[in-house]
């Protein structure tokens, strides 16, 4: 398992390198630059700025400098927020997004799995159909529709919850709900399908023939295999939810990674965008590795 982990981490290096090259080229290929504003700067000022940040260098030299900095743990300076580095910006925003994301994960995965189990055990009942249609809605209606509607209902009309910001625990309810809903819906459907499938397998029939209780069948025998598809979905989903949602953070005015991303991209803040790309892709790689290692925990036949 150690050997497997090490080799997977090593093989992540070329993946990351490729992501870096692609992202760097794309960011630089986008028209405009970090110092373009509505009122054009005097050319000599812009030239001095470009020189100061090394933007006058050839593309590959810039890329080399950036990667060199990364290797030293330096994400570089932000072009639009000269008072802070990209590292500091991420350090401020990431905990905000990650907290929201973790809460959404607990709610989404936890409730999703529970709903999936209930639906699977009551397969084709009215309850099953209701739960599954609600889930379908959760998947198909996008966050930028759900979130404003929730704000309208709970914050504006009913005045139960605050509409934006993150000052008190009550402020967390609506954004966490909005973030968790699609995950919850997706997990519930996955869980239902895989549990229904698992309960049809031969070894469950054997267990039934031995007179074991249905609680044992579901929780001791069928749960592990049924969780496997859920785990493979959750890996990348966790990486996504921890790094914040562009839409949700915008709507609830939350100073997280998602908002940073939007601003960075719009402002052509090259280093900021690159830093966030590195953060997201590393998280994704790590989460996928954890998922693969979890397969080994869930299924004893899988060995690394």
């Amino acid at each position: 398992m150690l050997r497997y982990t090490v080799s997977r981490l090593i093989s992540a290096v070329p993946t990351l390198a490729l992501v870096l090259v692609l992202a760097f080229s794309l960011v630089h290929a986008a028209p405009g630059g970090p110092f373009d504003t509505e009122r054009a700067l005097p050319p000599e000022t812009e030239a001095r700025l470009n020189e100061a940040y090394g933007l006058d260098q050839p593309f590959w030299v810039q890329f080399g400098n950036y990667v060199g900095g990364l290797l030293r743990g330096d994400f570089g300076p932000s072009y639009r927020y000269p008072q802070s580095t990209v590292g500091e910006l991420i350090a401020d925003a990431f905990p905000v997004s990650a907290t929201l994301g973790l809460l959404a994960l607990v709610v989404g995965a936890g409730l999703g799995i529970a709903i999936g189990i209930v639906a699977a055990l009551r397969q084709n009942s009215v309850l099953d159909h209701v739960l599954m249609s609600v889930s379908m809605t959760g998947i198909s209606v996008p966050g930028f529709v759900i979130a404003p509607l929730a704000v309208l209902l709970f914050a504006v009309t009913l005045r139960w919850l605050p509409a934006s910001g993150l000052q008190t625990p009550a402020h967390y309810v609506l954004p966490v709900f909005a973030l968790a809903l699609p995950m919850l819906a997706y997990v519930a459907r996955l869980m239902r399908a895989s549990l229904v499938e698992t309960l049809k397998s031969q070894f469950i029939r054997t267990a039934r023939s031995q007179g074991l209780s249905s609680r044992t069948l579901v929780f001791r025998y069928a749960m592990k295999p049924a969780l496997i598809p859920v785990v493979s979905y959750l890996g990348p989903a966790i990486a996504a939810v921890l790094t914040g949602s562009v839409v949700i953070e915008q709507i609830f005015n939350i100073p997280g990674i998602g908002r940073l991303f939007i601003q960075g991209a719009l402002n052509r803040d090259y280093t900021l965008v690159m830093g966030l790309v590195v953060l997201y892709s590393s998280l994704l790689i790590v989460m996928n590795l954890i998922v693969d290692l979890l397969y080994g925990v869930l299924d004893p036949r899988v060995r690394y």
Partner: peptide, 17 residues
């Protein structure tokens, strides 16, 4: 009443000892 099934590969629970 007990039963032994045909395929011992799939009839035992692969996830438990």
């Amino acid at each position: 009443l007990s039963i032994v099934f045909q395929d011992p590969m799939t009839s035992l629970n692969p996830y438990l000892t």
